[in-house]
Write a protein that binds this DNA or RNA. Structure first.
Length: 198
DNA sequence: CTCTTGATCTTCT
DNA sequence: GAAGATCAAGAGC
């Protein structure tokens, strides 16, 4: 409702607490489309995500715990940040329950808050290119290994619910070579801020 | 527009 | 030694 806009000052719904993630990753992933993610006040609307689960070989948790993926095996509502291809950072939200090792990879965001900071970090001006990919959005929001294991409902992280259910599209996940047939990628229909079209 | 390649960390073989 | 939940730049069409 409009009152929430003035209450939280972010133009989005109420703050999401970590309990939001204590259910199936396949329910959480589409429910995150339209939510607003902020890191120190910088971020925007989540428009693309992918679900991963330890029972499926594309997941980092498939072969059991390692120093890198330890957070995935912990409680829901925390962030798992990993190094991708030696150069980028990617951010996931842990779901379900301890040991279930499921998470949602955040793949694209529509920038709405702190555009100047994002442009400075990305050395780019075009809003459509600031957060249109998992490695791009972490750079724009300033997410690094220092954020690995932090709870999503405590500063510097903040998440706000969408105010109405958007049209969501699903498809196969991007950039993987195992379990390629699973349609576990979700996006905001018609968004111009996706990493790739559906 | 598409295709190729370099960057170089973590895990697995 | 090789592959991987990526990105940007350069070549070619």
């Amino acid at each position: 409702m409009a009152q929430n806009r003035t209450l939280n000052g972010h133009g989005a719904g109420k703050a999401l607490k970590r309990a939001f993630f204590a259910r199936s990753v396949h329910e959480v992933a589409p429910d995150l489309i339209g939510a607003t993610l902020l890191v120190d006040g910088v971020g925007g609307i989540i428009v693309e995500v992918e679900a991963y689960h330890h029972t499926e070989p594309a997941a980092h948790s498939f072969r059991g715990p390692t120093p890198r993926n330890a957070v995935m095996f912990g409680p829901p509502g925390f962030v798992y940040v990993y190094r991708s291809y030696g150069i980028h950072w990617c951010v996931n939200f842990v779901c379900e329950k301890p040991g279930s090792a499921s998470a949602v990879l955040i793949r694209a965001i529509e920038p709405t808050h702190g555009l100047a900071a994002m442009r400075r970090r990305r050395h780019l001006h075009d809003a459509r290119s600031l957060c249109s990919g998992p490695g791009k959005l972490t750079e724009a929001l300033g997410i690094t290994h220092k954020h690995n294991g932090l709870p999503l409902d405590v500063p510097p992280l903040a998440l706000f619910a969408r105010e109405s259910k958007p049209d969501i599209v699903a498809g196969v996940r991007i950039g993987i070579t195992k379990a390629v047939e699973l349609p576990w990628r979700y996006g905001l229909k018609g968004s111009k801020f996706l990493s790739k079209p559906f």
